[in-house]
């Protein structure tokens, strides 16, 4: 089971208790150059459900999958191949 993070919280009755919170996942990575992807927040999947589509990542083709420079190379080769 993924280790739960313990966070100190002050409850309304004045006591200080430990609350449990899941650790944030690591950065999203580009599929072929493994660099960090911009515009994707590090949230656990249940929090991603609340976000709207445009908040989850860039709206470029291959938006959340390839980084911007990789998509540029991909389309440049496609244009040259014509």
């Amino acid at each position: 089971m993924r280790a739960k993070m313990r966070v100190k919280r002050r409850t309304p009755s004045g006591k200080i208790l430990f609350h449990q919170r899941r650790e944030r996942p690591s950065h999203a990575k580009c599929a072929n150059c493994k660099s960090q992807l911009h515009g994707i927040s590090r949230k656990i999947p249940s929090e991603f459900k609340k976000l709207s589509a445009s908040e989850k990542g860039p709206e470029r083709p291959y938006g959340g999958y390839l980084c911007s420079s990789c998509t540029r190379e991909l389309f440049r080769e496609k244009a040259r191949g014509v």
Binding site: S68, T71, K78, A79
Partner: peptide, 12 residues
């Protein structure tokens, strides 16, 4: 005729 490689219209 060129192909746009950046931005949301890339690839068109």
């Amino acid at each position: 005729v060129c192909m746009k490689v950046a931005g949301r219209e890339s690839g068109s």
